[in-house]
């Protein structure tokens, strides 16, 4: 097994995987936001640790990831929560313990899959055998959160977890194709849009204005968005201020 370029790279990736378990098992949204943020920051550090002495582009990507994933987005999300409260994900479709179990199974599957890939070529090109499992377990955990959680903020956290997983895989390519990994930063634009959507007062006001808008021929009762049942959750917590417009 080839060694990591710096001795603490493997433990960092281990930490990334453990943080997936934390978000899967926690109902407290504030703590989950912090966990996803720490995960993003740790991935930025891991990028530096796996590729010591890399080009300035690689360093820029790593530092950028630390700043955006680790600080900016978590802080913005945190602002979306009411200060002084402990908002929780109360009624997920699948309980937290079951989610943890499935997370463990998913991580085991990711490890096995990484071994399958290793049969053809070493998955340790970037210097670590944990990169591929960390990436895939992140993607799986994020998916699971998207499917089973009800609040909009949890969905954003699920997306961020997937994004962190994708970035973790990018660690393999940081030397060979930094431009492709840089493109991955564009995913953060989505994350930014989501947080803006959760935060912006503007959307609230416009919804209220539209509700009072007499000539709006395209206003109809809120009846038909039902297939995935996902959005009910958003109205439950109401981060978008949708409650102001009651179904007619």
């Amino acid at each position: 097994m080839p060694h990591a370029s710096l001795p603490f790279a493997e433990p960092l990736l281990m930490l990334v995987i453990v943080l997936n378990f934390f978000t899967l098992g926690s109902s407290r949204l504030r703590a989950s936001i912090r966990a996803v943020g720490v995960q993003g920051f740790v991935l930025g550090v891991a990028a530096l640790a796996l590729h010591p002495g890399q080009s300035w582009r690689g360093v820029a990507v790593s530092v950028g990831a630390m700043a955006i994933k680790g600080i900016v987005i978590p802080r913005m999300l945190d602002q979306g929560l009411e200060p002084g409260t402990t908002p929780r994900e109360t009624h997920p479709h699948v309980g937290f313990v079951a989610s943890l179990m499935l997370g463990a199974a998913g991580t085991a599957a990711a490890l096995l899959f990484a071994r399958t890939l290793a049969g053809d070529g070493a998955p340790s090109v970037g210097g670590s055998w944990l990169v591929v499992p960390a990436a895939l377990s992140g993607v799986l955990a994020g998916f699971w959160m998207l499917v089973t959680r009800r609040t909009a903020i949890s969905h954003v956290l699920g997306f961020l977890t997937i994004e962190n997983g994708v970035f973790a895989f990018g660690l393999l390519l940081l030397d060979a194709m930094p431009e492709l990994v840089e493109a991955g930063v564009l995913l953060d634009v989505f994350a930014g849009v989501f947080t803006m959507g959760l935060l912006l007062e503007q959307i609230d006001r416009d919804v209220a204005a539209a509700a009072h808008d007499g000539h709006d021929a395209e206003q109809e009762p809120l009846t038909s968005l039902r297939e995935t049942g996902r959005f009910r959750a958003v109205r439950q917590t109401d981060p978008l201020g949708l409650r102001r417009e009651e179904p007619r």
Partner: peptide, 23 residues
């Protein structure tokens, strides 16, 4: 259309397409 339902639809669209794009 700037009503609650178009907000919902936009949110869903962005969430699902962001995941697709991430994959």
């Amino acid at each position: 259309n700037r009503n609650a339902r178009s907000l919902e639809a936009t949110w869903k669209y962005l969430l699902l397409s962001s995941v697709g794009v991430a994959l």
